[in-house]
Design a binder for these strands. Structure first.
Lengths: 163, 163
DNA sequence: TTGATATATGTCATAGTATAACATATCAAC
DNA sequence: GTTGATATGTTATACTATGACATATATCAA
């Protein structure tokens, strides 16, 4: 339940594990995990940060996997629809899900300095918002929670060592 | 502390009150509440829903208050910067603040059927996200909380009466 | 009142994000 | 192998947002 994103980790295996996991879930759900979709997921996992659709498209173009915007957007639609990738609305960008094994409502910590993004878990059914929603008769289906600030690496303590 | 937005209320006075309140706050803070800025706020208050920048620009154009995108965006920048208006990232749209008297972190309930938006209050310092942030050394400065679902008026109970 | 500075507006141009529409290809089931 | 559903290729366009620079207005000091 750590908010993956600011700490070091074994990145190669993290990418491989995530791809395998998604592959398996597509298999069992009867979803087509096509080359473009797989490659887009890999790109996002390798970067481990939020990428714009056109950045992703540039990569696909270099690899002859597509050159027009719909190619990237369709793959991203598929991946986000099934929860393998999340969209960061604040940045108009996309990031691979850091917790692909569980259904969840993600929350993001976005560093305004280095643009790194950490994903944490939340529980919609708790908290003030849920109380207010149920009190007014609003039924929440999805939620976006994005916090902006300074990550540990960009906080003043670290800045001092650069000055 | 009710989530204004789905309930009936005295709309004329709500608009007038909000404009007066913003006017007073600009006065005391030495901010220029210019005609375009005031009109944009009024438009948002009158509609009482989220409007896109270009919808607002259309209104301004009709009233000869400006015809180019920067006119609308500058007014919206001013209003959002000072908390008189909020941006709904999910919709790329803007809505007048429903609680202009207090500094706050807004949370929004967005109806996917009728696009109405209700604003509620949250407290960033409580909850899971704050715990995770402090545990990882991330300092939250701002946050976006947008929930999507069905408002009371669009929930199945009401739909039945239309069928 | 004038001049200096900061702030706001008018306008043109362009950048960045996203989707509609339709033809073609591939997959999955019968 | 035909059929129907799903996915891709491609063109065009819509929607969202900002850079840049000239002009105007406000604020404040002398």
């Amino acid at each position: 339940m750590d908010p993956i994103g600011f700490a070091k980790h074994d990145h190669d295996s993290c990418v491989a594990d995530a791809v395998s996991s998604v592959e398996a879930r597509c298999q069992s759900a009867g979803l087509q995990f096509t080359p473009v979709r797989k490659r887009v997921l890999e790109i996002l996992l390798e970067e481990h940060r939020a990428l714009g659709a056109y950045e992703i498209l540039d990569r696909l173009r270099d690899e002859n996997l597509g050159s027009q915007p719909p190619v990237a957007y369709r793959a991203l639609d598929f991946l986000t629809k099934h929860g393998f990738v999340h969209k960061i609305e604040r940045l108009n960008a996309f990031i691979a899900c850091a917790h692909p094994h569980e259904v969840h409502t993600p929350a993001f910590l976005i560093c305004r300095e280095c643009n790194s993004v950490a994903e944490a878990e939340t529980d919609l059914t708790q908290g003030r918002l849920a109380q207010i929603a149920s009190a007014t008769g609003f039924s929440i289906e999805r939620a976006i929670l994005e916090a902006e600030g300074l990550c540990p690496n960009c906080s003043p303590k670290h800045e001092a060592s650069n000055a």
